Simulated assay, not measured.
Amino acid sequence: MDQVMKHHPVPDSLSTPVRRYLFRWEIFLLLVIAMVFILNSLASPYFLDPWNLSDATFNFTEKALIALPMAMLIICREIDLSVASTMALASVCMGLAAQAGFGTETLVGIALLVGLLCGLFNGLVVTGFGIPSIVVTIGTMSLYRGITYVILGDSAFTEYPDGFEYFGQGYVVWVFSFEFILFLGLALVFYVLLHHTNFGRRTYAIGHNPVAALYSGIQVNRHKVILFMLVGMLSGLASILLTSRLGSTRPSIAIGWELSIVTMVVLGGVSIAGGAGSMTGVVLAVLLMGLVTFGLGLLNVPGIVMTIIIGAMLISVISVPVVLNKLKQRRKVR
């Protein structure tokens, strides 16, 4: 709604600071989260169980980790659709190292390095050849996934060192899992990075007008490469958590996750055209999608139906600002 309100300023009668705050997209997301929470609690007697709610976080935290840097990349007018394939490749590399006898610390380093290199490759191709990132990352999505199938085929890696399972299955305190605490910590880091640092201000500047940003002294290509590397590294981190939680590596791991991750970002109010969005909105969108999928799961809704709902949410959030803008233009013409 931020981008909606950007193109559709509220009337003078609604222009007080309090009313402007109430019309923010984040407030709308909070209201929807409250409504979904109430509906889920009424629909299933198991919803309010603390351990059930804790288990629900496992369904979205790995995707949410990638959504954090992805939001900054989309604000910067780029996108990375190879994130799920990067996770698969990082998981396979961890599996190979585990079979060779390496310990947990080495596996973590390998996954982060593989993710970083995948992101670096994406960024260098996009900025070096001037090819749209959606085209490049669709290509690398197939490339990285194809490598995993070449290495593994129909087999799987299932032997991992002791202690590795904690990343995806362990709890820090009471019902709060390691994954969820890690997500909250990184969400705070990315909030500060986007909203309270020069790096974040440069991200918005590039998203608004990359040519003007370049002439103002910002190293646009270098900035984009760094963002691609951040997305890749967080994909590697998500791979660690997912592989640890599942206890195995298969070439089909995380397949189709690109849609959910992009939906989280766009639902959070990040403009797909770049230049607008907030990290608070992304975190709220993550929680909303987690509640929706968990509630549908308790009602035994099939996974394919959940995919349809996620796709419908993505189309709706992208199309609503466009429709509202066209309606406003028609009113002006009249």
Rank of each mutant, 00 (worst) to 15 (best):
F23M: 15
D154P: 05
G290N: 07
G119K: 01
S142P: 00
I138T: 14
W174L: 13
F157Q: 08
A64R: 09
V175E: 13
F183D: 04
D12Q: 14
L182S: 14
I33C: 03
L124P: 02
E78C: 12
H195Q: 13
E179K: 13
I134D: 07
F23I: 11
L53W: 00
M313L: 15
S177H: 13
S235W: 05
G281Q: 11
H7F: 13
V175Y: 11
S244C: 08
S316F: 14
T280N: 12
F167W: 05
I272E: 11
L314H: 07
S91Y: 00
S133I: 07
G101L: 06
K326G: 01
E105I: 11
I304Y: 13
A273E: 08
V262F: 05
L296K: 09
M306Y: 03
I75V: 03
V266C: 04
L53Q: 12
I261A: 04
V333N: 08
L143I: 13
A67K: 07
Y21G: 11
L29V: 02
A205L: 02
S41D: 06
L242K: 10
L186Y: 00
A64V: 04
F60H: 07
S252Q: 10
H208D: 14
V114F: 01
I309F: 11
V292N: 03
M70P: 06
L227P: 05
P11T: 14
D12G: 11
G101M: 00
V283C: 10
N300I: 02
S177I: 03
V286P: 02
R250C: 03
G128A: 09
A64E: 08
L120T: 00
A238M: 07
L188H: 03
L241Y: 15
E159P: 00
F294H: 14
F183W: 11
F157V: 05
G170V: 09
L116A: 13
N122R: 08
G207E: 07
S239D: 03
P251G: 07
D154Q: 12
P9A: 06
L22K: 05
L143N: 02
N198A: 12
V301F: 07
L48E: 09
G115C: 08
L116I: 07
M70S: 14
P302D: 05
A56M: 14
A213Q: 07
A84S: 15
I151E: 10
I304P: 00
I309M: 11
M313K: 00
V114I: 15
L42A: 12
I218L: 07
T61E: 07
G290C: 06
Y191C: 04
H223L: 08
P210C: 08
E258M: 01
L96G: 06
N198G: 05
L246A: 13
G103D: 15
V305N: 04
S244Q: 10
T57G: 06
V18W: 13
A34P: 01
R331W: 11
R145I: 00
R77T: 13
T293E: 12
V108M: 09
A98P: 04
L194S: 02
I110D: 02
E258R: 04
G115S: 07
N122P: 01
L81G: 04
G170I: 10
R334G: 11
V225Q: 04
P251I: 06
L284H: 04
L193V: 12
L230K: 02
P132R: 08
C93W: 06
